[in-house]
Design a protein around this nucleic acid. Sequence first.
DNA 1: AATATGGTTTCTCTAAAGGACAACAATTAT
DNA 2: ATAATTGTTGTCCTTTAGAGAAACCATATT
Lengths: 101, 101
Amino acid sequence: MKTKNNNLITLEEFKEKNYGKRGTKQRDELEAGYENFKIGVLLHEARLEKGLTQEELASKTGTTKSYISKIENNIKEARISTLQKIVELGLGGKLELSIKL
Amino acid sequence: MKTKNNNLITLEEFKEKNYGKRGTKQRDELEAGYENFKIGVLLHEARLEKGLTQEELASKTGTTKSYISKIENNIKEARISTLQKIVELGLGGKLELSIKL
DNA sequence: AATATGGTTTCTCTAAAGGACAACAATTAT
DNA sequence: ATAATTGTTGTCCTTTAGAGAAACCATATT
C-alpha cells in the first residue's frame, strides 16, 4: 500500500514558513486576505485537500513540479490561464475571479 | 457641464460584439462562467459602473488606454498583479480570487 | 462639414516573467 | 547507511507583458 501524505507539510507549517508566525504583520495580512494575492497559499491548500504531490499535480497539467513549487511560494506569478489549467485539469476545480467595487 | 457616458457602449453590446448573441455556444459559456476567464468583461463592467473612460482609468493607473482596451477585449492577458493595480488604484475596488474544489 | 470624444487596432521595442530542466536538500522508510 | 519520495532552488531560453505613440473608426455635438 502506497502511503500518502508522507512528507507533505501542513498548511500551517507552510504559512509559517512563507509568511511567519501568527501575530506578525505579514502573516496577519495574509490571514485577513489583504495585501497582494497569495495565490500560492490557495493553490497549496487546494492541492493538500486533494492529497496530491507537486509532481502528481504537475504531470496532470503538463507542467513541472519545480514550477508548481515556485507558484506556491510566490516566487513566480503564474498566468491566469495557467492557474486555470492547473486548477481545472489538475485539481478538478474551478478558478474564480471577481471585482468588488 | 461635461457630459459623461457619451459613447460608452453598454455591457450587452460589448458582450455581443466579442462573444456573439445569446444562444451561441461561446456566449452561453461566457454567461455560465465557463471557458477561459473573461476578465475583460469584468473589467469593462466595473469601469462602466464607475463611469470612467478607458483613458481616465489608464491615467489613474499609469498605463495607456490602448492597453486597457486590449485587456477588456482579451487581446492581452494582464498579470494578476497588474489587474490588481488597475482595480485598486483605478477603480478603488478589490480583485478577488479563489479556488473552488 | 468639421470637431471632439471614446474606443479599437497596429507597430515597435525592451525589460521582465513564464516555464522547463537538472541538481540539490530534507524527510522518511528499508 | 542508503535509497526513495517530496519539495526547493539555480540556470537557461523563450515568450510576452506592457509602454509608447500613432492612426483609425464610430458616434455625438456645433
